[in-house]
Design a protein around this nucleic acid. Structure first.
Lengths: 236, 236
DNA sequence: AATCGTATGATTGTATACAATAATACGCGA
DNA sequence: TCGCGTATTATTGTATACAATCATACGATT
């Protein structure tokens, strides 16, 4: 059956345009390009071995994702993520993950519950062993399950977008050794609340989980990753 | 002439692509195309007197706006919004508009405050006169100001996206005569809270404002607009 | 030397040609 | 008639050619 569900993650990875899009997004998020650096159609095209057409279409998409800014007849410029952006994203995520957890108490399936439990169990193991990469992977997966469990394509999509967006930061953060286990404990709390169908508690814990993640990130020196001058975080 | 250029400083209106984009968006929002109707590149191009290239680029943008869904090698289809989607959007917007109002108590500028006051004053006038179109336009603008006043590009962008998304529904709803004035009263309350720097109250009122809007919409028969079967609200 | 205008090159915007893929129609054999 | 493979057509995907616009350099004029 055809899936008409509203979904921005439709940019397929197999067309040239899709490949260009994903490649550029990754490169921008990974810091390959400086902020405000100009992206030239021919240069990108040559680098990836494609013509300007798919590059241009990818540009249009990146623009709407907010990763580049296109000035007509002039060029495309990387916008990047400021510290302020990261802060804002976590602020938003905090609310939405809370909503998501709340909804999950009602809609989560048995299978999802089981996978969550397994996830947490495994995470404990890897935390003991110091397997940071696996820990990060499990953390990603935990949140994905949660997103899928809220029974809302809209919310799921939003959260996945944000999740994706701060992936690089999160990776760094979880790698700070002591956050990993702490994060996993918080996951466990959320899971317990969901199992108990305690919507309010689940919301609250998921809420707090995001705030903690952000605060830990700040402590570990967010500024080193996103050394940015012209963010608009300064109040009047 | 109805001008929906609430946002998207990025999509210029003077290039062919920009014109195609705006035209198609308006047509979709105004219901010129059926849900799930296929948009063909050549047909659109001929209708607007342009080649496929700008049409394709406009498609890519419309896809990310969530107005159409592109299936690779197949076609572009107008996205349907299900009742469930609308409900979810309002649920999310309720939270985020609350956050936005809360932040605005701290960051709003004098100019924005003044425009809000003018907006509300004007809305009263048009409400008395029964000018529903102007009322809808002012309502749009009120929320846009609020979005811009929160000092968060991220949040602003998200809210504008959602706002855009439910424009069709909102238009219909505000036209239900009695919601317009009520909505404006709620705007006034939010503005007062912001002026008083009462963050908690502003959040609460903005929150409630969304819930009220949604409930009114349901009463007025959302199902008539979005009579949709294949929504993804699966029973647990 | 400073300023303006113009020529030149670089870059994006658009149109079109061609390739790849998917949808449809048709005919053949059982 | 039904099933299946193939030919045909329609439609999208990509590459390229050409037009429009912008940036730069340079020289003429003051």
């Amino acid at each position: 059956m055809t899936d008409y569900s509203v979904n921005k993650e439709v940019t397929d990875k197999y067309s040239l345009r899709g490949r260009v899009f994903h490649k550029l997004r990754e490169d921008i998020l990974n810091g390959k390009y400086e902020e405000h650096e100009e992206l030239k159609e021919v240069a990108i095209g040559e680098e990836l071995g494609v013509s300007r057409t798919p590059v241009r279409e990818a540009f249009r998409q990146l623009e709407l994702e907010g990763l580049i800014k296109i000035i007509p007849n002039k060029g495309a410029y990387v916008t990047g993520i400021t510290e302020k952006d990261v802060k804002d994203i976590y602020m938003i995520r905090s609310l939405l993950e809370g909503l998501c957890a709340k909804l999950a108490t009602e809609y989560i399936t048995k299978e999802q519950l089981e996978e969550m439990e397994e996830n947490i169990y495994l995470a404990k193991f890897h935390a003991d062993k110091g397997h940071l990469d696996q820990l990060a992977e499990l953390d990603n997966r935990f949140h994905d399950i949660l997103y899928e469990a809220c029974n809302s394509k809209m919310l799921e999509h939003q959260l996945k977008d944000f999740h994706q967006y701060v992936l690089r930061v999160r990776k760094k953060t979880l790698s700070s050794a002591n956050r990993g286990p702490k994060s996993n404990e918080e996951h466990e709390g959320i899971l317990e609340a969901i199992k108990a169908h305690d919507a309010q508690l689940a919301e609250q814990l998921a809420n707090r989980h995001m705030i903690n993640a952000y605060e830990n990130m700040v402590q570990n020196g967010l500024h080193e990753i996103y050394a940015n001058k012209d963010d608009n975080s300064s109040p009047k």
